[in-house]
């Protein structure tokens, strides 16, 4: 794909910021320019947590994404807040375990994936965010599949090396999910 201008959004604690870090790091490992900007402040406590992530082959001028070409939503307030900002032709990925509402626009590509339920069923509780990255990868090809593997190895902290395999499983579940 061309440049990625994404908004990732959900509740605090769902791993939204980590999801952004994984995506940005994948871009970094491919030698691209990347930026990651979190929402910060009181809205993170209990409300929506979101971050803007850009990957580009050129300079990134505005790290704050206001017109995303990718939206990943992990709760209803975030879905409602950002759905109208997605550019026509953009991609919207919805965790349908947590959001039952459907997209009313017909000018965007929508994917409903029950990421939280898939994580639970596969013994990967807490990795719904990584499943969503797998889906994003399959839909947009924002990086090479191999780069994601390298990324996971890089971003999982040394003390949690046993989680690398689980993260890769989560990527594959998302990547292979056919809804």
């Amino acid at each position: 794909m061309g440049d990625l201008n994404s908004i990732l959004a959900g509740f605090g604690g769902q791993g939204i910021l980590f999801m952004g870090k994984v995506i940005a790091t994948a871009g970094l490992l491919e030698g691209k320019e990347v930026s990651w900007l979190p929402s910060y402040g009181p809205e993170m406590r209990g409300g929506t947590a979101n971050c803007s992530v850009c990957i580009s082959s050129g300079d990134i001028c505005s790290p704050l994404v206001t017109s995303p070409n990718v939206l990943i939503a992990m709760n209803l307030p975030s879905f409602t807040k950002f759905i109208d900002t997605v550019v026509p032709g953009g991609t919207v990925i919805v965790d349908s375990t947590l959001i039952s509402k459907k997209v009313e626009r017909n000018d965007v590509n929508v994917c409903y994936i029950p990421a939280s339920a898939l994580a639970e069923q596969s013994g990967l509780k807490g990795l719904a965010n990584i499943i969503l990255i797998g889906k994003l990868l399959e839909l947009t090809g924002f990086c090479e599949y191999l780069s994601i593997k390298k990324t996971i190895e890089k971003v999982v902290p040394p003390k949690k090396q046993h989680l690398i395999q689980k993260n890769m499983e989560a990527i594959d579940i998302g990547y292979n999910y056919k809804g």
Binding site: V34, S35, W36, L37, P38, I60, P63, L64
Partner: peptide, 10 residues
Amino acid sequence: DGLLGQMMEP
């Protein structure tokens, strides 16, 4: 500013 302080970049 808060944008530069909070963002991550290579």
